[in-house]
Nucleic acid binder design. Structure first.
Lengths: 204, 204, 204, 204
DNA sequence: CAGTAATCGAGACGGTACGTCATGTCTTAGT
DNA sequence: ACTAAGACATGACGTACCGTCTCGATTACTG
């Protein structure tokens, strides 16, 4: 069971690649992920099916790369790399600000549809899930790790706290409410999460 | 656009229903959800396809009911209803104990495969997602709400804390690690979550 | 492999039988034989499917009996048994008259649809075909045999002619044109057939 | 109500087409037409169902083309086109010879099964019936028309006789006996038909 | 004249085949 | 060589009917 001879990437059609990304994102947005088909993407992109199968192993991979590309384009347009979290010295305020922005993103259908589709696929397809986490999720989480580490050094967080776990106290609840519709998401809600997480549930 | 004439539920074959549940759970466990087909379930259950389509609108609904039935059977076997969380007076210890049990459940493939499959389907199929949350998730979460409310009355939790949000501080991180493989899950991990949530990240 | 205990014909519901005949003939006329289903007949007749399967082995048998019943009813209405062919002493005229009536029957859709359907089924289902021929076709043909035999005795037909074969010279062409649409059917056409058959193609 | 985009016939797989013909004829011969299914043909031919549905609208059309192809192959093997009837100058002898050959064909199950199935389908499906007649039946009948016309010019047939009708006197009876099992078919029988038709039933 | 047994309307059941859709591979022209 | 186009084998979809079976509810003989 050998792979086909690897195609020659240098001769790849850039135009087709971009058309495929655009078609994939458009279709997922319009008709939803499950009804989006490779054939549909190919037709919409004006591309042969083989051109998709040559470069991606599966529908989910097309969408993952399309979505990553979208992010990179946005980043390039904004002119910077993966931005660090702000550090004004006020940890609570900084976290609240970033989470409010995340809430806004989650409420934007252009982000919601493909991100949700990829997350769903990732639950059940472990290989894709790992790539989703590594390429999309972890880079974001790392920013919290950095900010929390800085806060720990500044004495705003207890020295024995593991930042990678700590961040989940406010990030995971928001993620779960978003993905599973277990509750409404709002700026108030994330503010509350940050307060609870920083100061604890027990009386001080 | 009317529904088909509703079938007569009183004449429904109990034997077929149980065989379908068993087949659905077995197949999801063995070959995974996406490769589980309605035809496969019917064949395995020794049942006509129409008998599945007569009673369920889609594959995901079969699995949801099968999974719910599994839970009810287990509950009946254990002899009681949805059990309340223990209340020994020590909130931290009680939460840790329950979360440890949840970790064990998540690590059991008999639970993991169908629960994960349903969660994935629920992300993308909002109607199913709402049923999943309402029938499976919320009843569990309500137990935490009750325990936290009791703790608040006992003075172990600050009076202004909303229990429905508070529980997410430790439940959602575990859920996310489980579903998205964003980190290992273990008894130590959930113990840590409880400690962080109760006492906060900031120095006391 | 035994038959089910034969049902008790004395308790059979006459009303259902008639309703089934009517429904079968109506459906074959309206939507054609292949799209007529046992379920459809049962529904239209307001009858359970089992009531059909109890009394007839297959769809074609229902239709055959319905069609026979139709003929008998018509005969009863007309007040007589299977009528002999007229014998005015003029063989050619008698044959032409009867064939003209047959042409009219063939052109009546109420006759055409079920008769054609039964014929088609009979081609491929030999058992049914034999019954079709024995119950419907042969009784008609026998009338020609009788008339030709009388003509032979009267000297209007050569003494060595086999009437059973002779009748086919004008009956079969008409039947084929009707069933297979191999040509138009009309009074002129059947008149011509009789002339050709009686006086031959070769110059006299 | 438009047709699907017509498939590109130049890229059609010749191998599949031949395999489908062979499978269709074999199955009709072995298990009969009604029990022959599109799925069965596809499986036997080692072909996807869609490949059948792409090129033919229905089972009957597959069989019709398979049967036509069979005839063409046989004709090609025999090296000639549709052969004219022999003309030895003796009309009766010529007709008897050809009809004897037809009898033999009708008695060969390899011919009988598909031809009968097509005829049956054609009775009830008028569109197919017309194609059956035009492609299979009429070319054969035309040979009789030609021979009878020649005979008419030679004075062996009365000048006012319409050959297209005249041929039915001996062809239709044979066809009806074959298709509807209304009587045995044999060389004697067809010889008799020719004699009756040429010299008439009435005394000369 | 009640008891009881078979037929009835209804329709769920295990199946088979339908005709459609999408998959991923392969072939053909065109650039 | 890579592309757009699309035919191909495969296999699942959801539907339609098949013929059998199981339900009460009539219905009509029998004891």
């Amino acid at each position: 069971m050998v792979k086909n001879p690897a195609p020659d990437a240098t001769r790849r059609s850039e135009k087709s690649r971009r058309a495929i990304y655009a078609a994939a994102l458009a279709l997922v947005g319009e008709i939803g992920y499950p009804r989006t088909t490779v054939e549909g993407i190919a037709a919409r992109a004006g591309v042969g099916k083989q051109t998709i199968y040559r470069w991606w192993p599966a529908k989910a991979d097309v969408l993952l790369e399309a979505f990553l590309d979208l992010g990179e384009q946005a980043a390039r347009a904004a002119g910077q790399e993966t931005p660090a979290l702000p550090d004004t010295g006020d940890l609570a305020a900084d976290l609240k600000a970033v989470l409010r922005a995340t809430v806004d993103e989650f409420l934007d259908p252009r982000f919601d549809a493909p991100a949700r589709a990829l997350a769903a696929e990732g639950l059940v397809n472990e290989e894709l899930g790992r790539r989703y986490v590594a390429r999309l999720l972890e880079p974001q989480l790392q920013r919290y790790v950095d900010r929390l580490r800085a806060a720990r050094e500044a004495g705003a967080v207890r020295p024995d706290v593991d930042p990678r776990i700590a961040l989940e106290l406010f990030v995971s609840p928001l993620a779960q409410r978003w993905l599973q519709h277990t509750g409404p998401i709002s700026h108030d809600y994330t503010d509350t999460l940050v307060d609870y997480a920083l100061y604890g549930l027990a009386p001080r």
